[in-house]
Design a protein around this nucleic acid. Structure first.
Length: 328
DNA sequence: ATAGGCCTGAGT
DNA sequence: ACTCAGGCCTAT
């Protein structure tokens, strides 16, 4: 699943192939990928075809190109999100047809069979948005000013960002992120810390995998209420998330192919470096107790019962504790 | 604050 | 045939 580090790898991969290029044609293979496009495929084509891509910016898991539009007063962004299974691929020669191998062996999976939309560039290359589950998307959004007046995100020349990304908080690799302020906003809420780490309006870029990893690293259990955290501990969790995503980004280079922007989250870094996510039943690398999988808010959650302490009974009691007498 | 919907392929 | 994977948006 592409989270902040994987999306940043995609941004860096797309950068040299797209910046300064003009989009000659938008090829829509499955209009569902344009779900968030106001006006549908026609409006997207109208807004994009013939215009130049000037910058590629990321905030959290949102990516957008700035569109250089001649004769338009309102700046537009071409926004994309990878959802769960989205990949952007670069095809160096878009006129070359990719044929499935004519093997007598079983049918090799055609990587392009989930191609949903392609941008054909004046370089002769095309970039393909491939997305099996179509949780991702591509759409245009008007540029507005960032409320804090800081640089909008990674790769941004200024403080302008798409209206659709205005509600997205800064991520932990953003120099303008104010960690103590984020920690305070976490402590002001009673929800479980994992829920808060996944709340894009508090801090962006963290998904299920890095939330579990950050909480493991900070020895904190997923169901600890934000309000039960000290400022010091909340900050430690944020630093842990920052650290694990920073290291993942460094390792992201290994699974990156120069020709293809490859977002295969389950190969490379993940298999070797995860301590909690996907390791249910395996020994904790820190204390040896078996990693436990539970379901939290409809998502799988992984923690070590040995070294990730359960919430201590301070502040507001849990709902279950409130509804019964404590047997102690 | 929380639940449902969007999606499809792999696994049981 | 059913379950699971889950980011983000909308509705309750």
């Amino acid at each position: 699943m592409p989270e902040l580090p994987e999306v940043e790898v995609v941004r860096r991969g797309l950068l040299p192939h797209t910046i300064g290029r003009t989009v000659q044609r938008v090829e829509v293979l499955d209009a569902r990928i344009l779900r968030r496009q106001v006006g549908g495929p026609d409006r997207l084509r109208e807004a994009v075809e013939g215009n130049r891509l000037s910058d590629l910016v990321r905030r959290g898991k949102f990516l957008w190109w700035r569109l250089d539009e001649s004769g338009s007063d309102v700046g537009q962004a071409l926004v994309t999100h990878l959802g769960m299974s989205g990949q952007w691929r670069v095809r160096q020669n878009s006129t070359a047809t990719v044929l499935p191998p004519a093997d007598s062996e079983g049918p090799a999976p055609d990587p392009l069979r989930h191609r949903r939309v392609s941008l054909h560039l004046d370089s002769g290359s095309a970039i393909d948005l491939i997305d099996q589950r179509i949780f991702g998307g591509l759409w245009t959004s008007p540029l507005i000013e960032a409320s804090d007046g800081e640089i909008a995100g990674a790769g941004s020349p200024d403080h302008l960002l798409p209206a659709d990304a205005a509600g997205i908080a800064r991520d932990l690799l953003d120099p303008a992120a104010d960690l103590p302020a984020i920690a305070r906003s976490i402590r002001a809420r009673h929800s479980a810390i994992k829920t808060l780490l996944l709340s894009q309006d508090l801090v962006s870029g963290i998904g299920n995998i890095y939330a579990d990893e950050a909480l493991w690293a900070a020895r904190t259990r997923f169901d600890t209420p934000g309000s039960a955290l000290t400022q010091r501990r909340a900050l430690a969790i944020l630093r842990a998330a920052q650290d694990v995503m920073g290291r993942a980004l460094e390792h992201g280079g290994t699974s990156f192919d120069a020709l293809y922007v490859n977002v295969d989250g389950r190969s490379g870094y993940f298999a070797r470096s995860l301590h909690a996510y996907g390791r249910a039943g395996e020994p904790c690398t820190r204390c040896g107790k078996l990693i436990r999988r539970t379901v939290h808010q409809g998502r799988s959650s992984h923690h070590c019962p040995g070294c990730q302490r359960p919430p201590t009974a301070v502040g507001r009691p849990s709902a279950t504790a409130r509804s019964r007498k404590d047997p102690q």
